[in-house]
Every structure is written in structure tokens, then in C-alpha cells.
């Protein structure tokens, strides 16, 4: 059982009530652009089973809580990524997986790759590696869960991606 502690306040309880189910059923958008997508598939596979955290892949952004940007994003793709993000319902989280999504990585000198997906959409957790191992992805997912527990119900946490520009 959850230990309530002494003298808890009402908002905390409500936050806890809202966040616990949220954190234990992270549905992520299957958005595999490049190499990291394969590691994402393997993380969903039998060995490092993402299902045990309640994380299931969805094919449509309308049903997803977490945008898992797995791989490099090019300028041609940038508008689509932004649109996918805007189509997701609130509250939404973004996990930039791999060096390309973090900063451009190996392709930072390229003419066509966006230098980090945080130039287009707000990112919650950055996961380094090229490509990150499934264990690392698990850890990133747990980090997202920790982050979710800190959310307050009264604060609208994310805004539209247009604010970044």
C-alpha cells in the first residue's frame, strides 16, 4: 500500500490520484524515423519487455501520451513532427531518443538534418546514445514516469509547438 505520510495536503492526493494511472499506462507513439527505431522495436520485444511498465505502442497520435522521437529528423520531416505533436492530447511528453534527436549527433554537419528535435517541439527527456540500448530506453521511460509524478493538476504543462519558434 502507498504510504500516505503525515499531514498530506489535498492537492498532493489529487495529483497522486491523477498521475499514478497516467504513469503506469504510458502509450507511446510508434514514431521510428531511423536507426533508433529498431532498438525501439527490440525494446518492445520479449527480452526487455516494455509492456510490463504498461507502455504499449500506438500507431496514431490521438491515442498517445508520449512522443518517442527515435532517430534523426530532417527539415522535410520537421513540419510533420510538429503536426504529430500538436495532434496528441494533453498532457503529452516527449522523449528524444538517440544523439540525432538530441542534437543532430553524427549528422550535425549535414545540410538537411534538424540539429536537435528540441528546435521543433519541447523535449522532456533526452536519451543519449547512438543507438541507445534497450536498457537505456527503459531507464528513460522510468525517468519520464518520475517526471509525471511531479505534475500538478492545476498547471497546464505544455503549450503548442509554435511557441518555440
Amino acid at each position: 500500500m502507498y504510504h500516505w505520510g503525515e499531514g498530506f495536503a489535498m492537492p498532493t492526493k489529487l495529483d497522486w490520484l491523477l498521475n499514478t494511472p497516467r504513469k503506469n499506462s504510458i502509450w507511446y507513439l510508434l514514431f521510428a524515423t531511423a536507426c533508433c527505431g529498431i532498438e525501439l522495436m527490440q525494446t518492445g520485444g520479449p527480452r526487455t519487455d516494455l509492456d510490463r511498465f504498461g507502455a504499449v505502442f500506438r500507431a496514431t497520435p490521438r491515442q498517445a501520451d508520449l512522443l518517442l522521437v527515435a532517430g534523426s529528423v530532417t527539415y522535410k520531416m520537421a513540419d510533420r513532427v510538429r503536426r504529430l505533436y500538436d495532434q496528441m492530447p494533453e498532457p503529452k511528453y516527449v522523449l528524444a531518443m538517440g544523439s540525432c534527436a538530441n542534437s543532430g549527433g553524427l549528422f550535425a554537419r549535414s545540410y538537411s538534418v534538424v540539429k536537435g528535435v528540441d528546435k521543433i517541439i519541447p523535449v522532456d527527456v533526452y536519451l543519449p546514445g547512438c543507438a541507445p540500448r534497450p536498457e537505456a530506453l527503459n531507464h528513460a521511460l522510468l525517468t519520464i514516469q518520475k517526471r509525471m509524478m511531479k505534475d500538478k493538476w492545476s498547471v497546464r504543462r505544455t503549450t503548442s509547438s509554435e511557441k518555440l519558434l
Binding site: T33, A34, G71, S72, T74, K76, M77, R80, F107, R109, S110, Y111, S112, V113
Partner: peptide, 11 residues
Amino acid sequence: VGFLHRSIEKL
């Protein structure tokens, strides 16, 4: 196509 054109040849 071209959504993942990462300019490997130029690099």
C-alpha cells in the same frame, strides 16, 4: 521519399 535524406554522401 526523402524524409530521411541525411546527406551521407555530402558528409
